[in-house]
Write a protein that binds this DNA or RNA. Structure first.
Lengths: 117, 117
DNA sequence: CTGTATCCAATATGATACTG
DNA sequence: CAGTATCATATTGGATACAG
């Protein structure tokens, strides 16, 4: 990042496209977006998320959270208590991604309205 | 859409979230984004897309294009010629979606740079 | 409470042959 | 050229039992 070389569009770069595709594939799975949305208002415990995402199984919540954590979109904090307490929260990256999804949701809403008119 | 009621965030709406999730699921599949990217510069024929998307099979290109068409992201135009000619193009919706993906790609690139520093 | 392990069903993808 | 049909494989998701 030195001078004026970055005015050229980056979207055509192969590596960038591939990585973008992987991110899309992640949040395009069955549960990731729903889980992230539940973390929008602040950290939540495992069970709280489990109960607020309709229809998700125990196993898939674990799996989804692990994946989001690996992608740097969600952070995990375990407290050394009995019974155990674990809190999940969006990272700054996760928050940013959710803003993109919010744009998308607004666009989807407009499409729906146009389609039903 | 009458007056000032739409300053409230829409992202929490259940239907909107569900529809957004479905769109993400579509473009999050293995090929959709790669195919759409190839249509960025204008309409292309089936075979041209087939050859420009590395590794995609005949069958999956057909399937991906059909799905994108159903979602209103790509249009299909068949010309009554022999041999047959069919052209695919992004719709305005498809173009818009691709701009979102471009934002995403730029963000991904920044992350990669930070991560490798 | 917060997980992991196992097994099964559903879906997505791929190879290939065939068609108007 | 631009597909469809069929079959095989890979990946994903769900139910359930068990564990620290």
């Amino acid at each position: 990042m030195t001078d004026a070389a970055e005015r050229v569009p980056r979207c055509a770069d192969a590596r960038s496209r591939e990585r973008t595709r992987l991110i899309l594939r992640r949040i395009g799975d069955k549960w990731s977006m729903l889980v992230m949305t539940r973390l929008m208002d602040g950290p939540r415990r495992f069970t709280a998320v489990l109960h607020s995402v309709d229809g998700i199984s125990h196993r898939m919540l674990t799996h989804t959270l692990r994946t989001l954590e690996q992608d740097g979109l969600v952070s995990r904090t375990a407290y050394a208590e009995v019974p155990p307490r674990v809190e999940y929260a969006l990272t700054p990256d996760g928050s940013w991604l959710l803003t993109v999804l919010t744009d998308l949701a607004a666009w989807v809403e407009e499409r729906d309205e146009s389609a039903s008119s």
